[in-house]
């Protein structure tokens, strides 16, 4: 017997171990075109996504470019207004806040609990602000400090934590390398002392050698500060290395979710299979056939009917694949798949 994810969440016993639970989150963009914007099209960038994030846990979000990973992150942060759904945050003071409905005062608490590191270190730092101002900005906006001196001290702490030197404070972003910029972005996110860090492809813009350093830094920070991560990436190896759970997205929908070991060694959804088939196998005895899926990602403006993957699926399609949007089902303990053919 299979249960849907939201069913499962209700039944989950260790409720207090949950930091963040997202329920049926949707984010649709309206795109207008034509004379005076008469044609309106909906871009379903995030469509009915549910998951929960435990304490000290990392969920890795993977999927190809344009599948809605960044949008998911920004919607959870409420940088973008969600179209519908619930985002329940359990704060360290054991208060539960629905981010979607939260008012100004509550949002302030949310900001102190959850922060984001952005994809492009070049564009995520204001070129006209010194590092001191950039990392100090959270303190100003959230009124966290009494005096300039206190702020400076805290900025220094944040910089030290990410491996930057005090004399970097007075400099401007263009004087830093990509890796250093990303460290500054991490320092800014850590400044408010959050419990959840949302990392949107934090290393995709960096050289491989720098990537490893940043990933190690993140792991260390997570251990030291007991953080939960939502780690967005399209690099499966990195995600596997970083996370306890993996969530695979395709065209705004979650197609597979579960413990990373299970997904890595035993992917179920055809899309996941094709993604993972391109990875080098750590154990040479394990055989993996390379599966190429053809065709481009369909536009999220008019996604295919039924299962969204049915235009590129290599398995034999049945009626259900073409008609019904498959729900996430738990096929094994801690392993959910949205495919009509897997039960």
């Amino acid at each position: 017997m299979s249960k849907t994810l939201s069913n499962h969440m209700k039944m989950k016993k260790d409720q207090e171990n949950i930091r963040l639970s997202v329920k049926n989150l949707k984010k649709y963009f309206k795109e207008t075109s034509g004379f005076m914007g008469r044609n309106v099209e909906l871009v379903k960038a995030v469509d009915d996504v549910s998951f929960s994030l435990g304490k000290n846990e990392t969920i890795g979000v993977v999927g190809e470019s344009g599948c809605g990973k960044t949008t998911l992150g920004k919607t959870v942060m409420r940088i973008l207004e969600p179209t519908s759904g619930k985002i329940l945050l359990n704060t360290r003071e054991n208060e539960t806040i629905d981010i979607v409905e939260a008012e100004k005062e509550q949002m302030k608490k949310v900001r102190k609990e959850m922060q984001m590191v952005f994809q492009d270190p070049k564009s995520s730092l204001n070129p006209r602000m010194s590092i001191k101002d950039i990392v100090g900005e959270p303190f100003d906006i959230l009124n966290l400090v009494e005096s300039k001196k206190e702020k400076e001290g805290k900025v220094l702490d944040a910089l030290e934590r990410v491996g930057l030197k005090p004399e970097h404070m007075e400099r401007y972003p263009h004087e830093f390398s990509g890796g250093q910029k990303q460290r500054i972005g991490i320092a800014r996110a850590l400044a408010v002392n959050p419990s959840i860090l949302l990392l949107d492809e934090p290393t995709s813009a960096l050289d491989v050698s720098v990537q490893a350093k940043i990933l190690n830094l993140l792991n260390k920070i997570k251990r030291d500060l007991k953080l939960s991560f939502i780690f967005i990436s399209h690099d499966l190896g990195v995600v596997y290395h970083m996370s306890e759970k993996i969530m695979v997205m395709y065209l705004g929908k979650v197609v597979e979710f579960g413990d990373s070991e299970k997904i890595y060694h035993n992917p179920q959804h055809p899309y996941t299979k094709s993604l993972f088939s391109s990875l080098p196998v750590p154990d040479p005895r394990e055989k993996r056939k390379r599966i190429e899926i053809d065709g481009d990602l369909p536009s999220p403006k008019n996604p295919p009917e039924g299962c969204r993957f049915n235009t590129r699926c290599f398995e034999e399609l049945n009626e259900e694949c073409k008609k019904r949007i498959p729900p996430l089902r738990e096929i094994q303990d801690g392993h959910w798949v949205a495919c009509p053919q897997k039960r």
Binding site: I79, F118, V192
Partner: peptide
Amino acid sequence: EEEYIDAAKSLGA
């Protein structure tokens, strides 16, 4: 469109 605007928003600016 720059991400530092998003960063400021995520701080509640």
